[in-house]
Write a protein that binds this DNA or RNA. Sequence first.
DNA 1: AGCGCTCTGTCCGTTGTCGTACATAACAAC
DNA 2: GTTGTTATGTACGACAACGGACAGAGCGCT
Lengths: 235, 235
Amino acid sequence: MKKIVGGMPIANRLLAALPRADRERMRTMLEPVTLNFGDVLCEPGDPIRHVYFPNDSLVSLLTPVDRQHLLEVGLVGFEGMVGTALALGIAVTPVRALVQGAGSATRMGAATFRKEFQQSLRLQREVHLYIHALMSQVAQTAACNRFHNVESRLARWLLMTRDRVGSNHFRLTQEFLGFMLGVRRVGVTHAAQALKRRKLIDYSRGYLSILNERGLESASCSCYEVVKPRKRANP
Amino acid sequence: MKKIVGGMPIANRLLAALPRADRERMRTMLEPVTLNFGDVLCEPGDPIRHVYFPNDSLVSLLTPVDRQHLLEVGLVGFEGMVGTALALGIAVTPVRALVQGAGSATRMGAATFRKEFQQSLRLQREVHLYIHALMSQVAQTAACNRFHNVESRLARWLLMTRDRVGSNHFRLTQEFLGFMLGVRRVGVTHAAQALKRRKLIDYSRGYLSILNERGLESASCSCYEVVKPRKRANP
DNA sequence: AGCGCTCTGTCCGTTGTCGTACATAACAAC
DNA sequence: GTTGTTATGTACGACAACGGACAGAGCGCT
């Protein structure tokens, strides 16, 4: 089976939606970084040092439960940013931000971002829109966790990931997936087998491919429709 | 058993946190309203006409799933407002806002609110803080729905309600609770019986009392700690 | 070839919740 | 009172997911 292949370069849409002038000014304050699989950008309770704008990388937001479990509540890719709390005037992050797909991003110091956010109405607008989208995503996740079975949730998760990294092939183990979905690894095994049997996906030892996107969509719950990142024309 | 008793008057904290000048100016734009049990302030997809600031009333935010189920993802009382999407530049609400506890509130027209929000930095600040709190609440709900059983979730829900209406006695049926928690009525019956047997609550035909707040806290999951509205001194 | 590590698959008894159906209890209206 | 309505309680089989333990399978390393 195929290993990971790099997609075409993807630029962060939140930044891309800004008018030229803002973008140019901010360019000097943005530091390009490479995010590696497994990196933890922040832990709950940490002061926010940087905000991150993923390009082709993918970051999971995990909320702690019972000082023991963690559960993914949001997935951030090129359509958003990590560190939205800062825009809301909160200096401390409530979530763990875990790099789930390696790739590039740009980042900005917290103080710089706050200043920019106050000054640029367009940045405010874009960040506000993204916060709303993220909120919807989290709400949908809450409902999905309540009503849908592992198989549907797995399908949804794979599609969301696909949309954000722009590739049908990515690296992840069942252990990791179980962690994200809040189920046992064995639960993932069963769900994944079912999808594999139907030739919707294939996987082996830490690599996974989506074979039939349409089929996977119909296997996933309707929650996927809600959290799909919309296409937006660049200005 | 006791019926509902009115608590002392509670004023909306989000508004109360504003400096005198802002508050005075806004007073003329705020219209006092009485919210009745069962009122629906908005349905998903509706344009937002007003934002609401509950005093002693209580509003549930419900997200639709599968065009069939609904699930509560947030609970708004005196500490917040209904219609946060508007502050984020979204004119259409993604949730149903259902009045779960009758009481008073004030409301403001959408256009007026947007104007005020743009002009008053303090209002921005307070609304931003609340949006963050709401986001945390929703995230916690997502995790809670995944890991905790009906009994714990019920206990948490009762405590959250208590905190927001300021009374240990309120009106609600098991049918309604099942709806909020996303479980069958019978599931609520079992959980409620367990809590009643332990003398933590009492209830009968649509009325419910919290008898032992401390005990109920330990019966609830730790999620309650996270979403408890913090005391804040009025400036 | 052999070893060890990691990832995936299987098994089994248990638990929480589901779906459905029906039974009792409290209150209201007449 | 009688009757109707609403709220709550009980019962039973079905099923998804759990927790834990163990069995293969793929791959790198020596």
